[in-house]
């Protein structure tokens, strides 16, 4: 029996070893490899929380092991035995106190980061707006400044804060580009703001994170960060070469289906606002649902 347990333990170690090896390549851990200020702040909070938790659990597991080894019920065990000892105010204050302090520290940093993320990551660069609509089962991006639209991929200028404005013309999904930052829900009838920014040029994996039915697993998209000039060039190219997204075209696009990457040189005016409104947005004052209190009319003015 014991030999078996030994073997089992060894194979467990072997497994964990493989797991670690397969994970050695840090670039695969995209959440831990942020490429923009939002992702970096979240990463810092992750690291801080790991450290704070480790401060508690490592000693506790140590004490636990020690106690279990020392106080076994063996006839020749000389360790003290005090069956009636059940109270010690000092010890209790310590173990109420330490977690309270740890939670306080983590709480302060959590609050700070939460506030920070509601603002554009850098102040001195003009942000751009990209509207995101989750559909069954694809992503549509519309660029109100450039009047172009794409499906399942988005280009953004590196070093520029991007305000993603999110909605859905399908069940609720969640827009997640791990290397740029955390996710936010896309909801029908709502429009919500999410600040993200890529510091460097590169291609980033994005996916829908909230389950939406049959084709959900296929809702990956690509976010390509390029230099500002290239971004402008790309937009021009799309305006020139790509087909138009008509009302009928959108209707077809919004039906349940899977799509490849697509580009459109233009889209019906007010498409995004119409999507929000037709899904019930008319009942709401959007003030509260925009991450940074951009209102619908602000958005319209920008155009």
């Amino acid at each position: 029996m014991n030999k078996w347990i030994q073997t089992a333990k060894l194979s467990l170690l072997a497994f964990l070893g493989t797991a670690l090896l397969s994970g050695c390549d840090r670039s695969k851990f995209i959440v831990l490899d942020p490429r923009g200020p939002v992702g970096k702040q979240e990463y810092n909070l992750i690291i801080l929380s790991v450290i704070l938790c480790a401060i508690i659990i490592i000693p506790v597991i140590g004490i636990f092991t020690y106690i279990v080894l020392k106080y076994r019920d063996k006839p020749n065990n000389k360790a003290p035995y005090q069956p009636e000892w059940d109270d010690n105010k000092f010890l209790e204050i310590i173990w109420w106190g330490i977690p309270i302090i740890i939670v306080a520290i983590l709480g302060v940093f959590t609050a700070k980061t939460t506030m920070n993320l509601t603002k554009p990551p850098v102040k001195d660069v003009d942000p751009i707006v990209v509207q995101v609509t989750s559909l069954d089962w694809k992503w549509m991006f519309t660029y109100p400044d450039k009047k172009i639209a794409t499906v399942n991929y988005a280009e953004i200028p590196a070093g520029v804060p991007v305000q993603f404005i999110l909605t859905s013309d399908a069940p609720m999904n969640s827009f997640w580009v791990p290397q740029l930052g955390g996710q936010e829900y896309t909801m029908p009838g709502m429009s919500m703001g999410l600040w993200l920014q890529a510091d460097k040029v590169g291609e980033y994996f994005g996916s829908g994170a909230n389950f939406t039915g049959k084709g959900f697993a296929h809702m990956q998209f690509r976010v390509k960060a390029v230099k500002q000039e290239e971004f402008n060039k790309w937009a021009k190219q799309v305006q020139k070469d790509s087909p138009v997204l008509t009302k009928a075209g959108y209707k077809k696009l919004s039906k349940p289906s899977l799509e490849k990457e697509l580009s459109f040189s233009s889209y019906p005016i007010g498409l995004f606002e119409d999507i929000v409104n037709k899904n019930g947005g008319i009942y709401y004052d959007h003030m509260n649902h925009m991450g940074d209190h951009t209102t619908m009319s602000d958005m319209n003015m920008k155009k």
């Binding site: 979240e42 929380s49 938790c53 939670v103 980061t113 939460t114 993320l117 996710q183």
Partner: peptide, 18 residues
């Protein structure tokens, strides 16, 4: 401990639904 990590709201943006 991982619960506490999830509780840090901005970090949860990265863990949620994963």
């Amino acid at each position: 401990a991982t619960g506490v990590m999830l509780a840090a709201a901005p970090a949860d943006y990265q863990y949620h639904n994963s």
